[in-house]
Write a protein that binds this DNA or RNA. Structure first.
Lengths: 237, 237
DNA sequence: GGGACGGTTCGACGGCCGTCGAAGCGACCC
DNA sequence: GGGTCGCTTCGACGGCCGTCGAACCGTCCC
């Protein structure tokens, strides 16, 4: 039984409270520097570095180096699912922990990324636009060297004629010259979501329709009842 | 952060290879005696008892005592989901382990329990019958003292007039005197599935329709393509 | 280039936990 | 009731791993 050893290895990673704190701090999809995670776990930089090394080796987190900072992220949606499954099993559920849990889940579902939508919702909308033939392209790649955390980048996505029509019909107001498409790699979903002027325009229109509402102080996005229905009908999400 | 400690406690439970072996052995929903689990984990009875005690205290397994045997089960569907999430993260996937994993998943989806259906499919069918008003009752309870593992028991479920009609229409042949309803508590789903003559009759009819096929030597049940469609249409499962 | 800063590596300390044999306990069998 | 069997408890041994300070390495800033 060679495969069994590995699942225990994953379990061992999750058996330490400090490591769990680190993972939970990353659970909403952010990328955080090692120092912040050390503070979050309440542990020295040396210890945190050791934990992060193990989490990385175990495939639970990934690193990006920017200057003298190293940003850590959850390695993918599987990790979020795993954390969710574990939280569901942790027997005592103090209120605060519950709120944190649902909040992280909500952020994974929908959040803002600067001026546009990210999370399952952002990715789902972009996927729908591509599937519906409103948006084409997407063979571009992300330059691993320069870009700061979670930022967008030029790629060869573009709206089709149908896409232009759809934008007008849906009520997204974009100056003709500003229809350049940008996207972000959405790390909680490991897929693309729209950014740039189009992403901002769509988010603005969704807010105008009162389908979604932005939290005043953070990146949370809530979907209204009307939004549930409208988003499902329009984008299948 | 009081809640965080507990999720690490769950992780610690999963950090031991022997405990993982035990959990994986139980992953298809069976109840196994401690001695069998000791053998499965490749460990002495004393050690296995220690592990089982911890798993029980952690809420991952439950015990039923029958005579001098003690049968252990996964505590519920959450545990199955957790194992699934962990397997999805264990990086190397030897073929055997993959086959085992998909097999366990298949058993959780559909299996036989003596002469009737269990697993998600069995539970889903029963739920549909109740929701559709074909079956009523179900306030009975399971006597914790006597019954052997996973066996059915009398309860006050009964078919309505519509239910009788439906049985005839669907092609389930039951002698009028043999319409007594029995059910099993389905432990992988923590819900009821039909047993008794009605459960057996429905399974027989599903086989006759070639919607499902029983494995010759074990409890596995596979759903055919026609079955996928028919079961969805008939029972919403 | 010097100094500060973020991060990792190294080494040593300490504690927790998995392990098994032996003993204890209850249930079954003849 | 004596013997067996299934399981748990106890106690002792041993190893693994989390922890931190100190040293080291690279980047940024003036």
């Amino acid at each position: 039984m060679p495969g069994d050893a590995d699942i225990a290895a994953v379990g061992a990673l999750l058996g330490d409270e400090r490591r769990c704190r680190i993972l939970l701090a990353l659970d909403d999809g952010r990328a955080l520097p090692a120092s912040r995670l050390a503070a979050e776990a309440g542990v020295s930089a040396a210890t945190a570095s050791s934990h992060l090394g193990k989490l990385r080796e175990g495939g639970l987190v990934t690193v990006e180096t920017h200057g003298r900072h190293r940003f850590y992220r959850l390695a993918g949606p599987h990790v979020g699912r795993l954390l969710e499954a574990m939280v569901a099993l942790a027997p005592p559920r103090p209120v605060t922990s519950l709120r944190e849990g649902t909040r992280a889940r909500a952020l994974r579902r929908a959040r803002t990324c600067y001026d546009h939508l990210a999370g399952e919702l952002g990715v789902g909308i972009m996927r729908h636009l591509v599937d519906a033939g409103l948006l084409t392209g997407g063979d571009g790649h992300r330059d691993p060297a320069d870009p700061p955390v979670g930022f967008g980048q030029d790629v060869d996505y573009r709206f089709t004629a149908d896409g232009d029509t759809w934008l007008d019909d849906f009520g997204v107001r974009l100056a003709p010259g500003r229809r350049t498409i940008r996207y972000c790699v959405d790390w909680t979903e490991q897929a693309h979501h729209l950014s740039g002027a189009a992403g901002a325009g769509i988010l603005a229109r969704l807010v105008e329709l009162d389908w979604v509402r932005r939290a005043p102080k953070d990146r949370a996005v809530t979907v209204t009842d009307a939004g549930q229905e409208g988003l499902a009908r329009t984008f299948g999400v």
